[in-house]
Write a protein that binds this DNA or RNA. Structure first.
Lengths: 342, 342
DNA sequence: CCGCGCCATGACAACGCTGTCAACGCGAAC
DNA sequence: GTTCGCGTTGACAGCGTTGTCATGGCGCGG
């Protein structure tokens, strides 16, 4: 069978009657090409349906048109959102996405990715929690001089560009929603202490309580680990006593689902006997009854914004500080919350 | 700052005192290299921590060491599992994974990916449901002469290599589990009619019922669309009547969760008043109370096996038929099933 | 002892593109 | 009219690897 030789820049150059370098210039949007010439080249590209070869580009030039995504997030939904958001933005810009799951518990964790960086020459990487907060990883990336953008990082914000949302304000809004419904006895389940978002969300909760002049009952603020199980257990202690909250704010959806499960088991009806809210808007939040009131994180948008920074190369602001982007969240009111009965 | 020139094959060749071609031979496991020489080269590679440049390899040779994953699956958990399984196997073999979400509802659906194939020169692609059953996509891939392996395809099995599990037998086993628990009045919620798995699962259900001599009540076999909502609605009709099944087999977990939600709403207790089972073992299956009895699909393993076929190039059996691999499922018994009370 | 063939190795071109630098043409400034 | 400068273009050399082909050495049979 005849090998299908693909169309090269030479073919385009010949067709347009210019040198390959000029075609290259047009393709890379370099300045100093006459409009006339540019159009002729573009026409030839169209006609031949020419697509540049990424390998050749990356070998010859300094860009690989490849962006890596490292992740070690236990939530598949989160990862999928990230991929989706990033890949869409990448596609627009002619970039492609390389996914690399990482096992951050492995001892040789950082060494897993150095070979990849060396082999692929990615133009940048996109880091999501929790790996985006690993100093080891960040150091390795810095050493390899690979640009990176962090999504929802926790601290060390001056270290590199990042994209985030206002967890604190979101938690405050959610708390206000509960208070607006008449709730005063609100329990809070904290997230994994290693995740920065946990602290932000707790702060937001406390802030809003204070702003509304509602006291926080410290024995109703319990530790969780972002897992269904931890939410389930936290809720059991929270709800077992006669003296129990009328609403529970879990720091993420998985734990909120645990709360709902615990409530079921204790024969409490949600939302009649207990309002429950979560944070994240995972797919599971809609797969229970009652469907969960929660905060929708703009995960895909954050990933897209991060990809944007990487592609445009705007990793620092004019004064040299790391660039950042703040995206909006959304309070999604569903069926797990209800005004406190008289 | 001094540019960090990375280590090339030249450096290794110099250090080992051989030509670059010999290094290349060692790296590619080509024959006709003296053991002595091979060891010397390997030592130099180790010492310099040399990593071949994928772009150069792909440009010069015929392989890109890149594998693409196309997907358009609504379930993020499914996609994540696929990525994970595939990427792990790829890593072992020095390959990398490129993810490409596809919008199969878009009109120019196939044209989205042709550029990518032309640009990236991937060595193969991995197709998951539902895109793995798109004739348009398959045709495009054939035309572009890109090898591909399908995961859990529906029909046209003689068209290309694939990896699958026995949906029918799994459904039969699940049904037997229910019957073994004493259930005779079993409702069944069908999956999306466009998914091949739907039919297989229904067949397995009917087979097992027949094998145990239990009649299928056709009015208890209702259509669903694999979504929570469709399961919820199907369950409402199923459970509303006085004369209702004691167990419901939903063709996937999302629908099973819908059934549980509907049961809650109707004040039926699962599993005391009703046993519910699903299929897939999604993360959500464990985030409800009671946790769902379901079938664990070996998604990651299927993806790994598919990557395996792609990498090894064993796309056809000796007699020219497409290669295939059958993987095992697992029946996971949790809390949503219970022996029928006396 | 000569010649053939195979194993082991290397020289060199090629892959498709970008970076560098030189060259050209044309209008402005002198 | 000549010079200078700038906008525009092209020639050419890599980028780091693999494919092709040539070369040299060595064992073995005649």
């Amino acid at each position: 069978m005849e090998a299908v030789r693909s169309i090269t820049i030479n073919d385009v150059a010949a067709k347009a009657g210019v040198s390959i370098k000029t075609v290259s210039r047009v393709l890379n949007r370099e300045p100093n090409v006459k409009d006339d010439t540019r159009e002729r080249v573009l026409a030839a590209v169209q006609e031949l349906n020419y697509k540049p070869n990424v390998s050749a580009r990356s070998l010859a030039g300094s860009r690989s048109y490849l962006i890596g995504v490292f992740f070690d997030n236990p939530s598949p939904a989160y990862n999928a959102d990230v991929h989706m958001g990033a890949v869409l933005r990448c596609r627009e810009a002619g970039y492609h996405l390389l996914v690399e799951p990482l096992d951050s518990t492995a001892a040789d964790f950082a060494s897993q990715l150095i070979p990849m960086l060396a082999t692929l020459r990615v133009d940048g990487v996109l880091l999501t929690p929790p790996v985006c907060d690993s100093p080891v990883l960040l150091d390795a990336l810095d050493a390899a001089q690979v640009p990176y953008v962090r999504v929802a990082p926790d601290g060390q914000l001056d270290r590199a560009a990042y994209v985030h949302m206002d967890d604190r304000r979101a938690a405050a809004e959610m708390t206000s929603h509960l208070i607006g419904l008449g709730h005063r006895d609100i329990g809070f389940i904290k997230g994994h202490p290693d995740h920065g978002a946990s602290h932000l969300r707790e702060e937001g909760f406390r802030e809003a309580m204070k702003a509304h002049g509602v006291a926080v009952r410290e024995d109703w603020v319990v530790q969780g680990w972002f897992s269904f199980q931890s939410g389930f257990e936290a809720a059991k202690t929270l709800l077992a006593a006669k003296d129990r909250p009328t609403a529970v704010f879990a720091s993420n959806d998985d734990m909120a689902l645990g709360v709902i499960a615990a409530a079921h088991q204790l024969r409490l009806t949600v939302p009649d006997d207990l309002s429950v809210v979560g944070f994240d808007d995972t797919p599971s939040a809609r797969m229970v009854w009652p469907q969960l009131t929660t905060i929708r994180q703009p995960i895909a948008n954050m990933a897209a914004a991060a990809a944007d920074l990487l592609i445009s190369g705007e990793m620092t602001t004019e004064d040299g500080a790391p660039a950042s982007r703040l995206l909006d969240f959304e309070l999604v009111v569903r069926d797990s919350t209800k005004p406190l009965k008289g």
